[in-house]
Design a protein around this nucleic acid. Sequence first.
DNA 1: CCCGATCTGTAATGAATCGCACAGAACGAT
DNA 2: ATCGTTCTGTGCGATTCATTACAGATCGGG
Lengths: 256, 256
Amino acid sequence: MPEAHWYIKNCRLFERLSSEQILRLERCSRMRTFPKHSSVYLPTDPADGALLLTQGRVKLSHLTEEGKEAILAYIEPGELFGELALIGDSTREETAETVLPSTIIFIPADELERLMTQSADLALGVSKLFGLRRRRIERRLKSLLFRSNRHRLVHLLLELTEQYGKNSPEGILIGIRLSHQDLANIIGSTRETVTMLLGTLQSEGLLRISRQCIVIRNPQKLSEEIHTPFHLPQPTEAHSELPRPRAAQALSLKPE
Amino acid sequence: MPEAHWYIKNCRLFERLSSEQILRLERCSRMRTFPKHSSVYLPTDPADGALLLTQGRVKLSHLTEEGKEAILAYIEPGELFGELALIGDSTREETAETVLPSTIIFIPADELERLMTQSADLALGVSKLFGLRRRRIERRLKSLLFRSNRHRLVHLLLELTEQYGKNSPEGILIGIRLSHQDLANIIGSTRETVTMLLGTLQSEGLLRISRQCIVIRNPQKLSEEIHTPFHLPQPTEAHSELPRPRAAQALSLKPE
DNA sequence: CCCGATCTGTAATGAATCGCACAGAACGAT
DNA sequence: ATCGTTCTGTGCGATTCATTACAGATCGGG
């Protein structure tokens, strides 16, 4: 499978490896495609490796006993996930399922660890990856403790704007479609509350909802609400079809 | 300062470094003592290095605009903190202040990064450290989303039991004194609610509060409540004075 | 283009918990 | 031991938010 080779080589994390190291990595990796809405792994599955998403979208979540789904993250092409297997976890602690048809490369943990001891560059890269994700989740924690649902939702919308924002005539369009239920599952609220809050925000002129897409009309004012300055994230043009292979970019290790 | 040398050398993270690397690290590090309740760093301070706590206790927290304090973590001797400086953050994102008189070694970020590129072992160690903390915080996030205050508190008590638990005649004693306000600030609730919940739990016979200390009488039943098995953590004997230099142990990188 | 399935909007009800107020208890520095 | 300070216990009104219920809109596969 020459494709696996291509994807591995073009992932930032691995670019400093020698070609024989990549070859070896490729040989013990397994590439697999999944239809949409299928399970990649479940809690209690053995955590024996990390996964590299090359196409599609994966949702990481956790089901509570009462049947509520806490969404931990969405994974985009080029991103690594399930990488906590590296620290010696024996089993997964969350559910990973595809949202779109996806292709995924599985990388055994022991092999990756072996490579990390060989390549300090790789190990440094993984450190930074972990660090970035930890910072993200710590910010999220802060936005949840003591905060009203409105605050949480606004915070989430701004995060989505930074990650998926595209310029459009009347503001920044969020380039990922999430149902109100999904949004609620990210901030730990309910569908009805999210519907209502979005309605309120719309009536306040802060955003507009059209054809299942959210357009942030006033990012500045929205971010004032949560007292964090908003950095315009070089948004790409809406409707400009992004080139498929974003693999190299998505794992960028620069400090955002 | 020969002591700094000793502490650095005895930290798990650094044990694989050559003696000249340690020497160099020591030379650019700065050791400092702080009285209790003093500030180590504030948000917006430049994040130019990581810190190693050798004695005392440090609280990491974040103040909301309404004046509430979200406690992110307590740092114990031998633990590294402020290490997100390594991923290129320019400023701190939280407050670090001492709870007890403390002595802290400051390690410049650029030096640490240089060392990581030299020693894959060190880089691997830092990866695992980041990974462990991320896992911890992810678990905490899960215990917050959709959960009642009772659930959050029980979860926290079990966490504290694993971290600070000591055997005692009538159950496991939590060896750290936190006020109800502190507990509330960790789970994002209010002091009054925590007081009430602790009262309820006590009347249910799950725990007992004596002289500002919490004794878990029935860890098993408590953990059933949150549907997570409880692993008895080789608890040390209460009243057995622990040897002072726990530095080497606390940063243990084994998967708990 | 059509129809079942999923998603969105709205409203009424009630539970959880916050905020405030205050009294008594425990602590710790002198 | 003493006294000021911080912590704990408790009660009650106010508020936010989950829950339930249902109708209309929208989507997407055939």
